Amino acid sequence: MTVMSVKLRSLPETGAAVGWGGSHSVIVDRPLDKAGGTGLGFNGGQLLALAIGGCLCNDLHYVAHEMGISLSQLAVDVEVSFDGRPLVATAAEVRIAVEADDPAADLDELVRRAKAASTVSNSLARGIPVNVKGPGLALSLT
């Protein structure tokens, strides 16, 4: 089993937080003037879309490498729809544009295999429990 973890801490004198895992960091915030947001970073919904698209980008590169395909161009656009109260993600649409150095490369198979291998998309589709613990509190969100 693989475990990945990140940490988030409030960023002094802002409404934002800095998150990091290993040597990489990101700023998380709300839009300017929304619940004290300062607009310094991505909100949770944007991070969800980035996780979906970023994971798929990596998988496209992994699978291309396995298939011996050299990619010349890759673009991944992700749109996540939200609805309800509390606001929850209801759907994600991913658009991929990919080109290879070899015009005969099987790009449909590349995309099919990358989607099948995508950790984030597969995790979301299957659903995972989220356990939240705080001072004297333990909640399970399923």
Score class of each variant (00 low, 15 high):
Leu87Val: 05
Gly44Thr: 15
Arg95Gln: 09
Gly45Gln: 07
Glu79Thr: 14
Leu107Ile: 03
His65Gln: 15
Thr90Phe: 02
Thr90Asp: 01
Ala97Ser: 08
Val80Gln: 08
Ser23Lys: 11
Asp108Asn: 11
Trp20Leu: 05
Phe82His: 14
Leu11Asp: 13
Ile96Met: 05
Thr14Gly: 11
Asn43Ser: 11
Gly54Ile: 01
Leu110Cys: 06
Asp106Trp: 07
Ile27Gly: 08
Ile96Gly: 00
Leu107Glu: 09
Pro12Val: 00
Ala64Arg: 03
Ala97Gly: 13
Gly53Glu: 01
Leu48His: 00
Ser25Glu: 15
Val94Gly: 01
Glu109His: 04
Ala35Val: 07
Asp106Asn: 15
Ala35Gln: 10
Val98Gly: 09
Gly19Glu: 06
Leu47Thr: 02
Gly22Thr: 10
Ser72Met: 06
Val88Gln: 14
Arg30Asn: 12
Gly54Val: 00
Ala64Thr: 10
Val26Thr: 13
Glu109Thr: 11
Gly54Thr: 02
Gly19Pro: 07
Gly84Asp: 02
Val80Ile: 12
Glu13Gly: 10
Asp77Gln: 14
Gly44Ser: 15
Leu56Lys: 03
Ala51His: 06
Asp33Leu: 13
Leu11Ala: 11
Leu74Cys: 08
Val88Thr: 13
Pro103Trp: 09
His61Phe: 09
Gly45His: 11
Ala64Trp: 06
Pro103Glu: 06
Leu56Phe: 13
Ala97Met: 10
Asn43Ile: 07
Val94Arg: 03
Gly21Met: 08
Asp33Glu: 15
Glu109Lys: 10
Leu110Gln: 08
Glu66Val: 07
Val28Asp: 01
Ala51Lys: 04
Asp83Val: 04
Ala97Phe: 08
Arg85Leu: 05
Ser25Lys: 12
Glu79Asn: 10
Gly68Leu: 08
